[in-house]
């Protein structure tokens, strides 16, 4: 499996056209349905290779894209998402400089 290939689990004969927002492996219990004690075990089961993490972000991007960008009557929401996200991102990377502008010594 080289870069740019479909995931190994994807089989066009069964799954049809490739959906980049979809995970084609065997699904685990969704994170939102876990109990607190199962979280560490759940995280331990995850595939933490760089490729898997890149796939995670790719699927998240496509899910967001299908939800807000691709629809026929898309709104301004994705634009604001990008704007707000970039504001937070740049605030975070410049946080070391902003910290010096604090007005109070004690909080």
């Amino acid at each position: 499996m080289a870069i740019g290939d479909y995931p190994a689990e994807y089989n066009p004969k069964v799954h049809g056209p490739y959906d980049p927002a979809r995970y084609y492996g065997t699904p685990d219990t969704p994170f939102s349905q876990l109990k607190l004690g199962e979280v560490t075990e759940w995280v331990g089961r995850r595939n933490k290779s760089p490729k898997a993490i890149a796939g995670l972000f790719s699927r998240a991007y496509w899910r967001w894209s299908h939800k807000y960008v691709q629809p026929k009557r898309a709104t301004v929401a994705p634009l604001i998402h990008i704007l707000a996200g970039s504001m937070i991102f740049f605030y975070a990377i410049n946080y070391g400089k902003f910290v010096h502008h604090r007005n109070y010594k004690y909080h």
Binding site: G16, P17, D19, H66, K67, Y68, Q70, P71, K72, R73, A74, T75, A77
Partner: peptide, 8 residues
């Protein structure tokens, strides 16, 4: 089949 959403 994937269907493009009409409304976001």
């Amino acid at each position: 089949r994937m269907v493009r959403l009409e409304e976001p």
